[in-house]
Write a protein that binds this DNA or RNA. Structure first.
Lengths: 153, 153
DNA sequence: GGCTTAGTTGACGTTAACGTAAACGACAGG
DNA sequence: CCTGTCGTTTACGTTAACGTCAACTAAGCC
């Protein structure tokens, strides 16, 4: 609080951050409303963002790109950002981290499952394409109807 | 359309599906409103869902658990479910599949990045905990303030 | 000084994805 | 016959995550 503008300390206005991370300024202010970021202010009330704030915002956006709601993200950030000194507090925080890691691992495996599903669909179409081209060269039509209903069960 | 209830063909009412997949019946009907599923109907208008419908619904829900909007999911499903016979159509569909696969790969790698971030946070707290316990045994306090702002930059 | 541009707060609008409630029909049990 | 349960449609309510607009201030520029 005593000496917060030393010149060497790099910071950016809201517009720069918005442009860099490709979100609107409104969005950033909204995140502040929810208590997700607390940027610094000049004595005239103008926001400026440290590189820490920037990293934080990036983490928020990354979290958002999956199911995580802003509330869940806030949960994470709060737990990790607070200055927890107590031994029990530390252990609880670490436990929470492990939990989140497990959730993410779950998500990753689910994504890989989704990937597999789509791959199967695609391959069935590649198969179709192969048969199609064969028919065009052979000029002999054999009706093959592979129903999509049997996939991924 | 000619003979759709053969006894051997297994199907479920909406409530069973809702319970199994842990969503409300309203949600399932809403998906139907959007054209994401078209279950069969008895002559009295009661919906019943084939195992294909069930797989489809699972795919929808799985897609939803990440950023995918219902519109995007509809896009996918339509493209894969339609009976595309033309050669060009098949190729376009396959191309679309490749695109989706790439998107998913992107998501996966982003998730792993997020995982890494959280891991780093957690490790910093584990470090803190270690110092804390050391202080408690040593009874000698050395102030170490590791600012969180320097993480993941 | 006047204009433009970038920032602020505050209020209201909007969209997706459902929740909830009303009003109805079919069927089973007592 | 009455009640309850499960299904249907229609319609309106709700919440999160912003968009949009108005009214204002301060800085820079000619």
């Amino acid at each position: 609080m005593t000496r917060e503008d030393r010149g060497r300390q790099e910071s950016w206005p809201i517009s720069a951050l918005a442009h860099e991370l490709d979100v609107s300024t409104r969005t950033i202010r909204y995140y502040e409303e929810l208590g997700l970021i607390l940027p610094g202010r000049t004595e005239r009330g103008i926001r400026f963002y440290s590189r820490g704030d920037r990293a934080r915002l990036r983490l928020i956006l990354r979290g958002k790109r999956f199911g995580f709601s802003l509330d869940q993200i806030r949960e994470m950030i709060e737990l990790f950002a607070e200055d927890r000194t107590g031994c029990m507090q530390l252990m609880r925080t670490i436990e929470y981290g492990n939990q989140k890691l497990a959730e993410i691992d779950e998500k990753i495996s689910e994504l890989m499952q989704l990937r597999e599903d789509i791959l199967v669909y695609k391959q069935s179409f590649e198969q179709k394409l192969l048969e199609e081209t064969r028919r065009m060269t052979d000029e002999c039509s054999s009706s093959t109807s592979s129903k999509w209903t049997e996939i991924s069960e």
